[in-house]
Design a protein around this nucleic acid. Structure first.
Length: 422
RNA sequence: GGAGAAAUGGCAGAGUGGUCGAAUGCGGCAGUCUUGAAAACUGUUGAGGGUCACACCUCCGGGGGUUCGAAUCCCUCUUUCUCCGCCA
């Protein structure tokens, strides 16, 4: 969430910049400022009442000690009213503080100045493309047909065991999945990230920490018996590693990577573009997460973009990078670049990575801070990106590498798969 | 799942009703000494709110209660440890 002090000091700027997301935040911003003023006013009243009560209590203690019990009892009677006042004030204060935090949770991050205004993916800016789109033979197939033809992914079996969106990978398909995970992790580790194995279920506090709650409640699987959520991305457990953490400035930067399955309800998705691997309820992803000094976070962001580019170049997949417009940028993000791989057989782009700088928005919720040069505690910046999401990379490989007599394996993966052709 | 013990500042660890936001040690920071460093010594060092700055308020795992007054007593939840049970 945004910092109240920032909203107060940059009221017009916040409203102006949020317009890029196509929202008029003027009312919310106004309400935040009013609620905060009210909150501070109540806090002062409560503090004064407590101070009075404290000093009377101290007096009573002194009187007892010097044997003046009668005088102490007179003072005791005075405290009753103060205690009532205190209870009433703290009730009011809690209400206002709750209202304030609820409102703050509803205000998305302020987009970076370079983010284009816009509503939907049509307003995203293509800023980079790389790789040649291969000319496929006449009988080229989309990946779901290839999966069936070579018996490497079984969607029907997944339907039986669980339901749609839970494919079963078999034989060389399973091996290729495992190869991709190992390859991605190795690339990330070589780039300085520390590998983590993270829980796949998280508690409510973690969901609030990264902003999945309250924004995306309906998109997560929830176990109501234990009140735990299945992770929609490793970002949630990975970033919450740093919840309630106070770092030294010299600890920065920090980079971690982890492989996890991801679970998404994808409520409301249906139709042709969810076929095959395009959109799943369970999929695998290797994530990279960074904690950065605020002065360095955009450098780090560019470094992450270059890192993902490096992997796609090695895989020799045709891809492009989009700078997301305000309306398409995720709720807690200040700037997001999406990577899309070209699916030749489907003749469309598939999103395979999303790299975001959250600046201090997540850190404020997480209370992730570092002690700066002046000895002050300052919010760190958090970033994350997929490096990479498996299913659509797999779709891209199957479709772009298909030949009349089988599917070639990208050269960098052969050491991991142990075979060069499906 | 059953029985018992525990949770205190960045870390370790005292503190069982008032003068405790909290001893002491380690770590951090500043200084003395040194050509420099180490060691030693001296000082300093929790977080949040609030204020121009003070004052002041809150925080000893979370929540609730008793009391004029709670780190300290009571209830409850969570977590950790030990023992037993079960088990990949």
């Amino acid at each position: 969430m945004l910092q109240v002090a920032f909203i107060r000091d940059h009221k017009e700027e916040v409203i102006e910049r949020l317009k890029k997301r196509n929202i008029d935040a003027s009312q919310m911003v106004e309400d935040v400022i009013i609620l905060d003023e009210k909150r501070r006013q109540l806090q002062t009243q409560l503090d004064n009442t407590s101070a009075e009560l404290n000093s009377i209590s101290k007096e009573i203690g002194d009187l007892y000690k010097s044997g003046k019990a009668a005088e102490a009892n007179v003072l005791k009677e005075k405290t009753a009213q103060l205690k009532n006042d205190k209870a009433a004030l703290s009730g009011e204060l809690d209400t206002k503080a709750d209202e304030l935090i609820t409102l703050l949770y509803k205000i998305p991050n302020v987009p970076h100045p370079s983010v284009p205004a816009g509503n939907s993916d049509e307003d995203n800016e293509e800023i980079y493309t790389e790789g040649n789109i291969p000319k496929l033979h006449d009988n080229a197939l989309p990946h779901w047909e290839l999966a069936k033809k070579y018996d490497i992914i079984d969607f029907e079996l997944g339907n039986k065991i669980t339901g749609s969106g839970f494919p079963v990978y078999k034989g060389k398909g399973a091996r290729l999945q495992r190869a991709l995970i190992a390859y991605f992790l190795d690339k990330n580790i070589a780039a300085g990230y520390t590998e983590y194995q993270l829980p796949h279920l998280v508690n409510e506090a973690s969901c609030y920490g990264t902003g999945q709650l309250p924004d995306k409640e309906g998109q997560m699987y929830h176990d109501s018996r234990d009140d735990l959520y299945l992770i929609p991305t490793a970002e949630v457990p990975g970033t919450n590693v740093f919840r309630d953490v106070l770092l030294a400035e010299s600890d920065l930067p920090i980079g971690i990577t982890g492989y996890t399955p991801c679970f998404r309800r994808e409520a409301g998705s249906y139709g042709a573009h969810v076929r095959g691997l395009n959109r799943l309820h369970q999929f695998d992803k290797v994530e990279i997460i960074r904690v950065e000094h605020p002065e360095n976070s955009y450098n780090a962001f560019n470094g992450m973009i270059d890192h993902v580019k490096g992997i796609l170049n090695e895989l020799k997949l045709p891809y492009r990078i989009l700078r997301l417009c305000g309306g398409d940028t995720g709720f807690p993000s200040a700037m997001t670049y999406d990577f899309e791989v070209f699916s030749t057989a489907q003749d469309r782009w598939l999103e395979i990575s999303s790299v975001s700088n959250f600046e201090s928005y997540q850190a404020n919720r997480l209370r992730l801070r570092f002690k700066n040069k002046n000895g002050k505690n300052e919010l760190a910046h958090t970033l994350n990106g997929s490096s990479l999401a498996l299913p659509r990379v797999l779709a891209g490989i199957l479709e772009n590498y298909q030949t009349e007599d089988g599917i070639q394996i990208p050269e960098v993966l052969i050491p991991y798969t142990g075979f060069d052709k499906i």
